[in-house]
Design a binder for these strands. Structure first.
Lengths: 325, 325
DNA sequence: CTATACCGTGAAATCGCTCTCAAAAGGTGA
DNA sequence: TCACCTTTTGAGAGCGATTTCACGGTATAG
């Protein structure tokens, strides 16, 4: 209809090669009249690119309760992706069977790369995908393989900073409620707590939770049993802290007078607890942006793997730690 | 490698046609050795199917605050989709420019259909996509076109039920804080309120909010100015109700003794307010499942369009309405 | 005026699969 | 053993784009 060959029409739509202004206009007019739009599948077949990346979230739990972690992360990811006209496909396997399907699906190369989050410590998925030649970026550190790229939050530093803060405001019997210890983030936060305690010559006092309020409440009860005179607790997540606050209230302890409480996440609910929760802010949105940026970089230049980014956290001091500095 | 033609190999992977057991095994073994996986783009090119659907969320706001509405919706959607081995691509345009890109992108037919949510009243997107032959299902009613399919929540019935409840517990000066009135859900909820008021011979008293706590707080202040002796308020969303509770507390009104409050959503935060919030439960997860089911149905049988589903809501009575029945 | 370079365009190969059609193979009953 | 029917398989034609290569045409320089 534009009186040109398919080759030239293609040049107009891909935009790479140069086409004279006259023919470009002719092609564009014809396209508009025909409502023609290039077919993505055909294009992918020849270019080998799909302009799509996958986000894998193999975790049922945190969608339900608490803070919009994933919504914020996804917005960060999308911010970067959409600037590059890349689309996001969401894979949220809820069972081992579905996890297998995810792997099969990604094998078909319907995406140019994958972002993986919420992995357990030795999840084989990232290495397997990488070995199949799929560019991969992890959200959260995994040390298994030095060639794996990730974006992580400085969990250790944040936890240490939080614990140091408790020490600074005069606390000496400081406990921690950890996250689920098969998660690297939980291990790192515990390590930060331990470092700060050790540096101050204080003994560790730990109970395991799983980032939920319920587990936090139970862990707090156990801690109070083990050491009734504890005067501070560092909780590995804000929901955990909410549970701890409940248990403390039930036990008649005042916060922060009797027991100071610090959380981790800076979730929205942290500002609404009574008293407002001192916590460690993690830059989720930025993490999403950075993950996408890194992945696009690796897709463009597959040789440069093993890139790591760690984002700083920040202590947000509110009422629950009694540290009004 | 398996000693068969490509045609036969293809038959093994698509699974449709029958292949003798011996050859099937031979092909599968060869595939395993070669780590062969069919290429999705090539497959799509010939079948015309991508086994992917899009979810469009053209709304920046509700991701940030409040309840995990979209996470739950997405889980519902994914539940149905993954049972059919269909993938979900997420489109969340944050600006008019990105909205245009969404339309261009969907034109390239990289998906078999689209789920559209959070549309404004006369958004042209659904009709345009449908006219291009793309199967479309809306989350939330739009009456513009009888051939459009949607899944909606019974906003009107829920709002009426909530208002009737307030009347039943003896309230007579009942106000409402609406949602943003360019949204059908907000209009429907207001209509439900109006019906119940009219049926009881009570006058309407309305202020507009936008589903956020901040707007709810301001609207509540305005209502108290206009009618200081009001004894109940129906809020078009739970976050709105949270804002209203704040304003009421600031004005020295006791809830529910002086003013009864009812929300809408049954968000997680509804159970944690003081007092716990009476609210209208909406089945978000089921809505997601139903949207996906409908879309797959239309994709399979494109002639059957204009299907509508309305899901029932349920009043959840807690402390804020003082109606302990 | 000729030689050189560059730019814009078209012909044709190619990407990796599915699917129709027809032929080969395998079974069954007389 | 043969005719006939049912499975199972292979050959080959697309699906709809991109991209390489080569070829005129025009501009620039000598």
């Amino acid at each position: 209809m534009a009186g040109v060959s398919r080759a030239t029409a293609s040049r107009v739509f891909t935009g790479k090669a140069r086409v004279s202004d006259a023919t470009r206009r002719a092609v564009e007019r014809a396209a508009r009249q025909l409502r023609y739009v290039p077919n993505q599948a055909a294009r992918s077949l020849v270019t080998g690119r799909t302009d799509t990346v996958a986000l894998v979230i193999p975790e049922p739990v945190p969608w339900l309760f608490g803070d919009p972690f994933y919504p914020v992360l996804i917005r960060g990811i999308n911010e970067t992706l959409s600037a590059h006209e890349v689309q996001l496909v969401l894979l949220a396997p809820q069972s081992p069977a579905e996890q297998e399907r995810v792997e099969r699906y990604l094998g078909r190369r319907p995406v140019d790369g994958a972002l993986l989050t919420a992995l357990h410590e030795h999840d084989p998925l990232p290495v397997r995908l990488r070995d199949r030649g799929l560019p991969v970026v992890l959200g959260g550190r995994i040390d298994d393989d030095p060639r794996l790229s990730y974006v992580d939050i400085d969990n250790l530093g944040g936890a240490r900073r939080a614990t140091e803060h408790l020490i600074q405001v005069g606390r000496r019997r400081i406990a921690t409620i950890t996250g689920p210890l098969n998660r690297v983030s939980a291990l790192d936060r515990r390590a930060g707590y331990r470092q700060a305690q050790a540096d101050a010559g204080l003994p560790p006092l730990e109970e395991e939770g799983d980032y939920t309020p319920e587990a936090g409440e139970q862990a707090m009860r156990r801690l109070l049993e083990r050491q009734p005179d504890l005067d501070a607790v560092f909780c590995a997540s804000d929901p955990t802290a909410v549970g701890a606050l409940r248990a403390l209230a039930a036990a008649g302890r005042r916060v922060p007078q009797d027991v100071a409480v610090v959380g981790f996440d800076d979730a929205a609910l942290a500002a609404t607890t009574e008293p407002p929760l001192t916590t460690v802010h993690q830059p989720i949105h930025e993490m999403g942006r950075e993950m996408a940026r890194l992945l696009l970089e690796i897709i463009a230049e597959p040789t440069r793997v093993g890139r790591r980014v760690t984002l700083a956290t920040q202590l947000v001091i509110r009422g629950s730690s009694g540290g009004g500095r």
